[in-house]
């Protein structure tokens, strides 16, 4: 190979110029160590969130009201497992193995989205997760699809395509409840009341608390700031909810005619920090369930690991 010798400064300038031109960075390209680390951290947390995200809804599969809802929910949960696999693979192209990331999750060293540490006591929670949580996830993921790292952006396109089904089934489920009995409508509103602020938190710490934002933007790791994403989500979802008579639990929520944006009360970011660090309502329950599933699935993985053909043997 004819790879010319270059100084760090030359390489960095080339890397940043490529991103400024809107070109993607691909595996094998030179990249600053900090870019690699930030992406491994982001993609890893994203993958863990998909895997842990199966749990709050998965528990409703045996109790889904009706066969069609049950099949839909199974398909949705399967999608989340698939998203986790796609994301672990994207992170692997940066040099960290899937095994290593899974171990970190099981050992409790890895972080994942705050929002999956809240309980799902009613069927309406399944609807609200589809509508709000997957809605916020799509706002975030559409941004990542425009990000600078090729494998992550490509994975996002596929994931967003599937998430739009998640949002629609959530809306359909919840709207059916809203037009049902008074008790069902109340159940839907109650779910919104419990999930509204955790979903706002899901889009991350406020910009004033994001010290590396400028660099992450320049490197195309973030295309929009957390506060921009949060505003985009609120503007999108508030008119949708109101149109079917659901109201977010915020007395200070109004459309600012001048800016065209909805004014809303910020969530409690100390709660976000606490839940992310392991001290939320269901963190222990989620990790226990994940470890149990890992242990109970071991015999399946061991059976699968035995290659039946010579092509399974690693190349020498």
């Amino acid at each position: 190979m004819n790879v010319p010798e270059k100084s760090y400064e030359e390489r960095l300038a080339g890397f940043e110029a490529r991103i400024a031109r809107g070109e993607k960075i691909e595996p094998g390209d030179w990249m600053p160590e900090e870019y690699r680390k930030q992406l491994i951290r982001m993609i890893g947390q994203h993958a863990h969130s998909e895997i842990v995200g199966m749990l709050p809804e998965g528990k409703w599969i045996p109790h889904a009201p009706g066969f069609r809802r049950k099949l839909t929910l199974i398909a949705k949960v399967q999608d989340e497992a698939g998203h986790g696999q796609l994301l672990y693979r994207a992170a692997e192209t940066l040099g960290k193995s899937r095994e290593e990331m899974l171990d970190e999750l099981l050992e409790g060293k890895a972080k994942y989205s705050n929002v999956f540490n809240y309980p799902t006591p009613t069927w309406a929670d399944v609807g609200i997760i589809g509508w709000l949580v997957d809605g916020a996830a799509v706002v975030n993921q559409r941004m990542i699809a425009k990000g600078s790292y090729g494998p992550y952006a490509r994975a996002m396109k596929r994931i967003c395509f599937e998430e739009s089904f998640h949002i629609k089934q959530g809306q359909d489920l919840l709207i059916q409840m809203v037009y049902g009995t008074e008790e069902q409508k109340q159940m839907a509103q109650d779910a919104l009341n419990r999930w509204w602020y955790p979903t706002l938190m899901m889009l991350g710490m406020p910009d004033t608390d994001s010290p590396h934002l400028e660099k992450l933007r320049r490197w195309g790791v973030k295309v929009k700031s957390n506060d921009e994403l949060r505003q985009e989500f609120v503007d999108l979802v508030v008119p949708q909810l109101r149109s079917v008579g659901l109201n977010p639990p915020d007395d200070d929520l109004y459309l600012n005619e001048e800016t065209g944006h909805w004014h809303f009360t910020q969530p409690d970011y100390t709660e976000l920090k606490r839940v992310i660090s392991g001290d939320g309502p269901c963190n222990k329950e989620r990790m226990d369930a994940r470890r149990k599933a890992h242990e109970e699935g071991r015999w399946v993985r061991q059976a699968l690991a035995v290659a039946k053909s010579k092509r399974g043997v690693p190349a020498t």
């Binding site: 698939g82 696999q85 796609l86 994975a155 599937e162 290659a307 039946k308 053909s309 092509r311 399974g312």
Partner: peptide
């Protein structure tokens, strides 16, 4: 994209589930 699998039969199954489900 890519999948993890121990042999070609499993790889095709995983690929079908991951990329040809819809």
């Amino acid at each position: 994209g890519a999948v993890h699998a121990s042999d070609e039969e499993m790889a095709l199954q995983m690929a079908k589930e991951q990329f040809a489900r819809r």
